[in-house]
C-alpha cells in the first residue's frame, strides 16, 4: 500500500464522520435564530441568556423611543413585543424580516443588535408581483 493511501483513508473517514454529524446530529440545533413561537415556548424567561430572535416586523407597531425603536415581531403564529436599543438598520421598515439579539424577560424582548433579513423576492417599485405564467406587461399590474 502506498504511503499516501494510508493518509487518505483516515482523512476520508474523518470527512464522513464530520458530514454525518453535521447533517443528522446538528440539524436541529444549527439554527441561526429562533422564531417568536420557539422563544415563548422554550426560552427560560428572565435567565439573561442572549439569543437571536427572527421574524417579521408587524405593520403599524413601529414606535421611536429615546434610545432606539420599539416594534412587534411575528412569525405568523406568535407575536413578541421588542424594545431595541440603538439605531435601526437602514432597511428597517414595516413588514421586513429582522434578526435581533438580546434577552427575553417573559413579556418583552430586549435587543441591542439588529440585522435585517431580506427574502429572495425582487419586485419592481410599482408593485409588480410575479406569478408563474405571467408575461412582462401583466406582471406590473
Amino acid at each position: 500500500m502506498r504511503r499516501y493511501a494510508r493518509f487518505v483513508i483516515p482523512a476520508l473517514g474523518l470527512v464522513a464522520v464530520l458530514l454525518g454529524f453535521l447533517l443528522f446530529n446538528l440539524k436541529d440545533s444549527l439554527v441561526f435564530f429562533r422564531t417568536p413561537t420557539e422563544v415563548v415556548q422554550e426560552a427560560q424567561a428572565g435567565d439573561g441568556d442572549r439569543m437571536r430572535l427572527g421574524g417579521q416586523v408587524v405593520a403599524g407597531t413601529i414606535d421611536e423611543t429615546t434610545d432606539g425603536v420599539a416594534f412587534d415581531v411575528s412569525d405568523g403564529t406568535t407575536t413578541i413585543a421588542v424594545i431595541h436599543t440603538g439605531a435601526p438598520q437602514q432597511l428597517f421598515q414595516e413588514g421586513i424580516g429582522v434578526v435581533i439579539t438580546g434577552t427575553w424577560d417573559g413579556t418583552m424582548f430586549h435587543s441591542d443588535e439588529m440585522m435585517v433579513k431580506h427574502d429572495e423576492q425582487y419586485r419592481t417599485e410599482d408593485g409588480g408581483e410575479y406569478h408563474p405564467g405571467d408575461y412582462p406587461d401583466s406582471a406590473t399590474g
Binding site: F32, F33, G54, V99, M115, K117, H118, D119, E120, Q121, Y122, R123, T124, G128, E129, Y130, P132, P136, A139, T140
Partner: peptide, 17 residues
C-alpha cells in the same frame, strides 16, 4: 440569515422581469 436560492426556488423564481 442568508435568503433562499433565487433561481432554483421551490416556488419558482420570485423575481420581476
Amino acid at each position: 440569515l442568508h435568503q433562499q436560492a433565487t433561481i432554483f426556488n421551490t416556488e419558482g423564481m420570485q423575481m420581476d422581469w
